[in-house]
Simulated assay, not measured.
Amino acid sequence: MTALGAVFRPQLPPERLRGIARAADEAGLEELWLWEDCFLESGIATASAALAWTERLRVGVGLLPVPLRNVALTAMEAATLDRLFPERVVLGVGHGVQDWMGQVGARAESPVTLLREYLEALRALLRGERVTTDGRYVKLDGVALDWPPAAALPVLAGAVGPRSLRLTGEAADGTILDASMSPDAVRNARRLIDEGREAAGRTGPHKIVVYLHTATGPGAAERLKAELADGNGGSTELGVAGDAGTIAQFVERLAAAGADTVVLQPTPDEPDPEGFVRFVAEKVRPLVP
Score class of each variant (00 low, 15 high):
1 M>V: 05
2 T>S: 13
3 A>M: 02
6 A>R: 01
6 A>S: 03
6 A>W: 03
7 V>T: 08
10 P>C: 03
12 L>G: 12
13 P>A: 04
21 A>C: 13
24 A>G: 13
25 D>Y: 14
26 E>R: 07
32 L>K: 02
34 L>W: 13
37 D>Y: 15
37 D>G: 08
38 C>W: 14
38 C>E: 07
39 F>S: 12
40 L>P: 00
41 E>P: 07
41 E>L: 15
45 A>P: 00
48 S>N: 14
48 S>W: 12
52 A>Y: 14
56 R>K: 13
57 L>S: 05
57 L>Q: 06
58 R>N: 11
59 V>W: 10
63 L>Q: 02
64 L>T: 12
68 L>T: 10
69 R>G: 00
70 N>R: 06
71 V>T: 09
72 A>C: 02
73 L>I: 13
75 A>M: 06
76 M>F: 02
85 F>Q: 00
86 P>H: 11
87 E>K: 12
91 L>V: 10
91 L>E: 10
92 G>E: 08
92 G>C: 03
92 G>R: 07
93 V>W: 03
98 Q>E: 08
99 D>H: 04
100 W>L: 10
100 W>G: 01
100 W>C: 10
101 M>W: 10
108 A>M: 09
110 S>Q: 15
112 V>L: 08
115 L>W: 03
115 L>I: 13
118 Y>A: 01
121 A>G: 03
122 L>Y: 12
123 R>H: 00
124 A>F: 08
127 R>I: 01
129 E>H: 11
130 R>H: 11
132 T>I: 07
136 R>W: 12
137 Y>H: 10
140 L>A: 02
141 D>P: 06
145 L>K: 03
146 D>I: 07
149 P>N: 15
152 A>E: 12
155 V>D: 09
155 V>M: 07
159 A>T: 07
160 V>H: 09
162 P>C: 05
163 R>C: 12
164 S>W: 05
165 L>H: 04
169 G>S: 07
170 E>P: 04
171 A>G: 01
172 A>K: 05
173 D>S: 07
178 D>L: 08
179 A>T: 11
179 A>Y: 15
181 M>S: 15
185 A>T: 15
186 V>M: 12
187 R>A: 14
189 A>H: 01
190 R>N: 04
190 R>V: 14
191 R>L: 09
206 H>W: 06
206 H>T: 02
207 K>R: 15
208 I>C: 05
210 V>R: 13
213 H>R: 13
214 T>I: 08
215 A>Y: 02
217 G>N: 09
219 G>A: 08
220 A>C: 09
220 A>T: 00
221 A>V: 02
221 A>F: 11
224 L>G: 01
225 K>V: 05
235 S>P: 05
235 S>Q: 05
236 T>E: 15
236 T>Y: 03
237 E>W: 09
242 G>T: 06
244 A>T: 01
248 A>T: 06
248 A>M: 00
252 E>Q: 14
253 R>K: 11
254 L>G: 01
260 D>V: 05
260 D>Q: 06
262 V>C: 00
264 L>E: 06
264 L>N: 04
265 Q>D: 03
269 D>H: 12
271 P>T: 06
274 E>Y: 10
274 E>D: 08
275 G>C: 07
275 G>T: 00
281 A>I: 02
285 R>W: 04
287 L>Y: 09
288 V>P: 05
288 V>S: 05
289 P>L: 11
